[in-house]
Amino acid sequence: MSKVFCIDVAKCNGCYNCQLACKDEHVGNDWAPYARPQPEIGQFWIKVKENVGGTIPKVKIHYISQLCNHCENATCMKACGKNAIYRREDGLVIIDPEKCDGCKACITACPYEAIYFNEELGISQKCTGCAHLLDNGYKLPRCVEACPTDALMFGEESEMQDFIVGATVRRPETGNHPKVYYRNIPGKFIAGTVYDPIEKEVVIGARIRATNGGKTVEVRSDEYGDFWLKDLAQGKYDVVIEAPGFEYKVFENVDATKDVNLGDIPLARK
């Protein structure tokens, strides 16, 4: 039975507990034959990546925990000439610290930058899924156990299907078949504020439409004149703003490969 990690990005508040718990478990602790001690600096076997989009005041932040994906088709295993990397029956991929000769081929082969080199020991290292704990009666890796919002989950793949169906993985095009699944990673946004420059008041209830390739997303400006077109697929959008008594406002080819703040938008009266 294969173990998997499931990460709900919407629940992650960026507390970094998972990252700290991993350090606490592995820095200075020798868990051979699973892993030798993790260096105090330079390695993050689980790393919280902060993603900031937009510009002030239209800014949103989300956090994505990244770790070894314990891939079903792990390119690191294929690259290792010493057979130092193996997959356990539970699906966790382990680098044997006794067999590793420090050639770094696995580091180059990993498309997720999840493998680190320990200069002092001369070996490659990465997340073990806390296999040393699982083999001694623990149910969860330390990172999952430390998560206060249940954004991190761990269990049998067969029992996590409700989460996995509809989830995504990092870089699926590699063919590695990662076993770390993500839900609720936000798409891009286009935001702004509409106002009447004559009355010096915001415009409430303006209709804002963004169109890309025949697909249209529509929202209304709120009581502050703000609008957020959320979870957009990356691409270029034509944005049309209309409100009773005002001329149409059009923004063509808005590039939403990044989050966009259109700023304060004055509407001209008819």
Rank of each mutant, 00 (worst) to 15 (best):
82 K>Y: 12
82 K>T: 15
82 K>I: 00
82 K>C: 05
82 K>V: 11
83 N>A: 12
83 N>E: 15
84 A>D: 08
84 A>E: 04
84 A>H: 02
85 I>R: 02
85 I>Y: 11
86 Y>N: 06
86 Y>H: 04
86 Y>T: 14
87 R>H: 00
88 R>D: 14
88 R>F: 09
90 D>L: 00
90 D>E: 11
91 G>T: 14
91 G>S: 13
92 L>G: 10
92 L>T: 12
92 L>H: 05
92 L>P: 14
93 V>S: 02
93 V>M: 01
94 I>T: 04
94 I>E: 07
94 I>R: 01
95 I>F: 08
95 I>Y: 08
96 D>W: 13
97 P>L: 06
97 P>Q: 11
97 P>T: 12
99 K>E: 10
99 K>P: 15
99 K>I: 05
100 C>Y: 10
101 D>M: 01
101 D>F: 00
102 G>M: 03
102 G>W: 13
102 G>E: 07
103 C>E: 11
103 C>P: 15
103 C>Q: 09
104 K>D: 09
104 K>Q: 13
104 K>C: 10
105 A>H: 01
105 A>I: 00
106 C>H: 06
106 C>V: 03
106 C>Y: 09
108 T>S: 13
108 T>W: 13
109 A>F: 07
109 A>P: 15
109 A>E: 08
110 C>D: 12
110 C>M: 06
110 C>Q: 04
111 P>T: 09
111 P>A: 05
111 P>S: 03
111 P>G: 11
112 Y>N: 07
113 E>Q: 13
113 E>H: 10
113 E>N: 15
113 E>I: 01
113 E>V: 02
114 A>C: 15
115 I>N: 07
115 I>Y: 04
115 I>M: 05
116 Y>N: 07
116 Y>P: 15
116 Y>R: 03
117 F>S: 04
117 F>V: 07
119 E>F: 03
119 E>N: 05
120 E>M: 01
120 E>V: 03
120 E>S: 04
121 L>G: 00
121 L>E: 14
123 I>F: 07
123 I>G: 08
123 I>R: 02
124 S>F: 09
125 Q>F: 12
125 Q>T: 15
125 Q>R: 04
125 Q>K: 05
126 K>R: 15
126 K>P: 12
126 K>N: 12
127 C>Q: 05
127 C>M: 06
127 C>R: 05
127 C>V: 06
128 T>V: 10
128 T>P: 14
128 T>R: 04
129 G>F: 07
129 G>E: 05
130 C>Y: 08
132 H>S: 08
132 H>L: 02
132 H>K: 01
132 H>T: 06
133 L>I: 00
133 L>G: 06
133 L>C: 01
135 D>E: 15
136 N>G: 09
136 N>W: 12
136 N>S: 10
137 G>H: 01
137 G>R: 02
137 G>E: 06
